[in-house]
């Protein structure tokens, strides 16, 4: 049965979830910068701007402690992080390019090793996605098979209506549970016409064709021509909804310390630096090649998915203007 929710009730839903001691995360503006942040009330939810960083950090934080250790006369003790305290969470207001990413990342975090941190957070989270109504010329979700109305990865999906408010569709049992437990906030029946998307939508790219080219062109002059200008920062990877490489560091003193897992990026020259000093990716264009290969070939080889949701963040943020949509478009045209 079609459902709807008014904007006021959506904000009320946030308030109610906060009262229930759930961690509610959604786009929030601070000094003009939109970020996914814990919300303390529904009023803080801001749906006008795509947050600067993706929503992946709800499941895969920028930095988290994975254990702590202490050395004393009795020996060394190692303390695990108590994951039973991870809160029940609701991610609210994620557009399709962000809502889609956890479902893509599940594959790698539950592959040869079951990452208990990521998976526990995933298990305890519900994603309320929202259809996107506004794009710019960096957006390319349609090129990678997602779209402004795509509910991939959402548990409950909202579509903005012309007269305000949202049509809701339940996508998963988690979404159903959220609706059932707050039924009074939802109305029944479609509540009006969908607000149209403002902006231009590109065509879907032939991802199989791109992958085939990548299969055969590990060595190609293209890499130098597009990526010799790459400066080797991690901006693209860190704000990406799908990049998920991390580093592990022991930090602290000689007596005690903490083992921390934090974001890493294949653009960094130290990323593949071996202890011997040898670096198999010894030039920046080889590091950038890895970014493209991982997204459009390796991840597909391994998990049958593309590791890109077309949010365009890396295009907007790249200090030297490297444009991944242009690059995959160029490859497809070859």
């Amino acid at each position: 049965m079609p459902l709807s929710i008014t904007e006021q009730n959506l904000r009320q839903l946030v308030d109610t979830l906060v009262k229930e001691r759930k961690l509610v995360v959604g786009p929030k503006l601070t000094d003009g910068l939109a970020l996914y942040q814990p919300l303390s009330s529904g009023q803080e939810l801001s749906l006008a701007k795509l947050p600067r960083r993706s929503a992946k950090e709800l499941f895969f934080p920028i930095c988290e402690d994975i254990l702590s250790f202490e050395k004393n006369k009795q020996g060394t003790t190692v303390n695990d992080v108590d994951r039973s305290h991870f809160p029940e969470a609701v991610l609210i207001g994620a557009p399709p390019c962000d809502a889609a990413s956890p479902a893509i990342l599940d594959a790698v975090f539950s592959w040869d090793y079951q990452d208990p941190f990521y998976l526990k957070r995933r298990e305890r989270s519900t994603i309320v996605g929202i259809g996107c109504r506004q794009g710019d010329d960096a957006c390319f979700c349609t090129a990678v098979g997602i779209g402004p109305d795509s509910d991939n990865g959402s548990d409950l999906f909202l579509t903005q209506l012309k007269g305000g408010g949202f049509a809701c569709s339940v996508v998963t049992p988690k979404g159903q549970a959220l609706v059932d437990s707050h039924a009074s906030l939802f109305g029944e029946g479609a509540a009006g016409q969908t607000r149209p998307f403002e902006g231009k939508l590109g065509d879907k790219l032939d991802l199989a064709k791109i992958k085939k080219w990548l299969d055969e062109h590990f060595e190609d002059p293209l890499w130098e021509s597009i990526a010799d200008i790459c400066i080797g920062c991690g901006a693209c990877a860190f704000i990406c909804p799908a990049c998920h490489c991390f580093d592990i560091n022991d930090e602290g003193g000689t007596e005690k310390g903490t083992r921390r897992k934090h974001w890493d990026a294949c653009g960094f020259s130290k990323f593949t630096n071996h202890a011997s000093g040898h670096n198999p990716r010894d030039a920046q264009n080889k590091r950038y090649r890895n970014r493209i290969m991982h997204k459009f070939k390796y991840y597909d080889d391994k998990f049958g998915k593309t590791l890109c949701t077309g949010c365009g963040r890396c295009i907007r943020a790249c200090p030297v203007g490297i444009d991944i949509a242009d690059i995959i478009g160029t490859i497809e045209a070859k």
Binding site: L33, I231, W263, A265
Partner: peptide
């Protein structure tokens, strides 16, 4: 707010 992407350093 810093995420240590090191864009400041690299640029």
């Amino acid at each position: 707010r810093c995420i240590r992407c090191l864009a400041c350093r690299q640029v």
